[in-house]
Design a protein around this nucleic acid. Structure first.
Length: 149
DNA sequence: GCCAACGTTGGC
DNA sequence: GCCAACGTTGGC
């Protein structure tokens, strides 16, 4: 059982959107480091749902992985924003997972607030210049963040 | 393999 | 909309 943090633009999918859907495919990851983390996720792992590129960036809730990595179908869809001309059905370099809603926090844990937490100094999210959209979270970091929610 | 140019991310 | 920082591409 591992812990993660994944970023999503709430315009695409928000924690409330996931709550309403119950479950959703997490696709469109187009960064190799992030993709490699996706591939190491196991069913039952939990993740913090982070809202990015929005008025209130921060951790908005918790989800869990209910299906391990599979080829990301959006890479093969020409009409998709995430289409990759180099991907083929036999050789699709991108991965997606399926996630389910676990919890929506009463209020978003803002990025500035998270940066103040010394327990989170090692988390890539709060490190300068980091743009990683999928990252591991240690058990200690997980507990520290849960205590803030 | 180097590295400049370009594209993207994402906070502000 | 700006821009800093990073990742990717492609010429050489």
């Amino acid at each position: 059982m591992a812990y993660w943090l994944m970023k999503s633009e709430p315009d695409e999918l928000s924690i409330k959107g996931l709550e309403q859907l119950g479950e959703a495919r997490w696709d469109g990851v187009r960064n190799y480091q992030a993709r490699n983390f996706l591939r190491t996720m196991a069913v039952g792992d939990e993740f913090f749902f982070y809202h990015s590129s929005c008025p209130e960036p921060g951790i908005a809730g918790v989800g869990k992985i209910i299906e391990a990595a599979f080829p990301d179908p959006t890479a093969l869809e020409p009409e998709s924003h995430y289409f990759d001309a180099k991907a083929t059905p036999g050789k699709n370099p991108w991965s997606a997972i399926t996630v389910a809603h676990v919890e929506t926090f009463p209020k978003v844990l803002g990025l500035g607030y998270l940066k103040q937490q010394t327990a989170l100094a090692e988390l890539p999210l709060v490190q300068k210049g980091s743009r990683l959209s999928v990252m591991p979270v240690s058990a200690e970091q997980w507990a520290a963040i849960c205590a803030l929610a």
